[in-house]
Amino acid sequence: MSNGTVAAADHMDAMLGREGELVLVNGLQQPRIEVAAGTTERWRVVNTCASRFLDLELEGRPWQLLGYDGQALRAPQQRDSLLLAPGNRVDVLVSPSATGSTTLRSRGYDRGDMGMGMGGGMMGGSDDTSSDVTLAAVTVTPGPDASRAVPWRGPGVSARDLRRAQVDRSRTLTMTGGGMGMGMTEFGFDGRTFDPDRVDQELRLGTVEEWTITNTTTMDHPFHLHVWPMQIVGPEESAEPEWRDVVIVPANGQITVRVDVRNHPGRTVYHCHILDHEDLGMMGVVAAV
């Protein structure tokens, strides 16, 4: 608000997940970024938004993806866009060969409306709950000849590949809640809202677990497990290992991950990384023994 205070949110705002009207990059609104032609820069982009999904695009200029959430790919992959849920991060190479101007932007992404509207969002609003937004102006200045650029050679994947590992236990976690009117329920897992005194999942150290995370709501939810990274194994298996700290569970869909439960005994949590949803109870307690 103009007086510097945070605007109050009603229950419906929190159910949708507040995004706000201002998106900052390193604390600045639409800053200018300069890159020299013929050079290679490594960018680490972290989505620290409370609810907004970022579908990143450097208009007219592809980039090389090095990895998501700190897990390096075996080799860089060319991408035109990159989707980051709240909490996701990526490392990319930017290697412009010609001078000019472009923009770093996030394309509109429809993450759902919690069943609060009839095809047009709540009260007839837009379906694109994460709207198109310009993040920064990028200027490519004259630089050395492109032939002098040294290709980046990254490490191989250091995490253990669990796709062929023996699974010691399988379990299903169901994301529940939302809706409108008399059918509205609080967010939670398996029909229960968060209770810090309750252990929802008990894990045994030294085992591999397979979790199927099911989303019964009409909105995408980013799922985050503390302490242990998750390897995506379904619904389709990728050509090489895919590790995430945050996975997007699509509306009325599911995703399957494997977890290597090494080290870190004690209690931690898993939760939806839309912070309003976490605050409304979409979180559970894990105990590793």
Rank of each mutant, 00 (worst) to 15 (best):
P76N: 09
V140D: 01
P265T: 13
H221Q: 03
D132C: 15
T129K: 15
L205G: 14
V94I: 09
R160V: 13
A7V: 03
S126I: 15
G27D: 02
V259F: 13
S130K: 10
T134Q: 08
Q64L: 13
G178V: 01
V261S: 07
P96N: 03
M114Q: 10
T218L: 14
A7C: 15
H11N: 06
V199R: 01
W152V: 15
L84W: 03
W43F: 09
D91A: 11
L54W: 03
G183H: 08
G284P: 01
A149W: 11
I33S: 05
T174L: 10
E237C: 12
R163K: 01
Y109A: 15
V140Q: 03
G27T: 01
A98N: 08
E209D: 01
N47S: 14
G284M: 05
Y270T: 12
L84H: 08
V286F: 10
E236A: 13
H224I: 14
R164T: 02
G67S: 11
V25P: 00
P196C: 11
P222R: 10
G119S: 11
M15P: 07
P86E: 10
L73T: 12
V45S: 08
V249H: 01
R148L: 15
R42K: 11
T176G: 00
G188Y: 00
A137W: 02
V140R: 02
H277F: 06
N252H: 12
V247P: 00
P31N: 03
L56I: 08
A7W: 07
G253F: 09
V92H: 10
G87N: 11
V140T: 04
R89Q: 13
Y270C: 13
I248F: 01
W211R: 15
W43K: 04
V233Y: 04
V157Q: 06
D220V: 15
F194R: 11
S95T: 14
R244I: 11
E41V: 15
V285S: 05
G143S: 04
R105Q: 10
A7T: 07
R163L: 01
R105G: 13
T193D: 08
A50C: 15
T48A: 15
R52G: 14
P241F: 01
R192D: 05
T129F: 14
N252M: 14
A136Y: 00
T214C: 12
L225F: 04
T207K: 04
H271A: 12
L82H: 03
L205F: 00
G112M: 14
R107V: 13
P62L: 12
V249I: 05
G177E: 01
V233M: 04
E186C: 00
Q64S: 15
Q166V: 11
T174G: 07
S158F: 07
V227L: 15
V247K: 06
T256S: 09
V233N: 00
R74D: 00
G27E: 00
A85F: 05
P76Y: 06
S51P: 05
L65T: 12
V46Y: 08
A165V: 06
N263R: 11
A14G: 11
S101P: 01
L203T: 03
L16A: 15
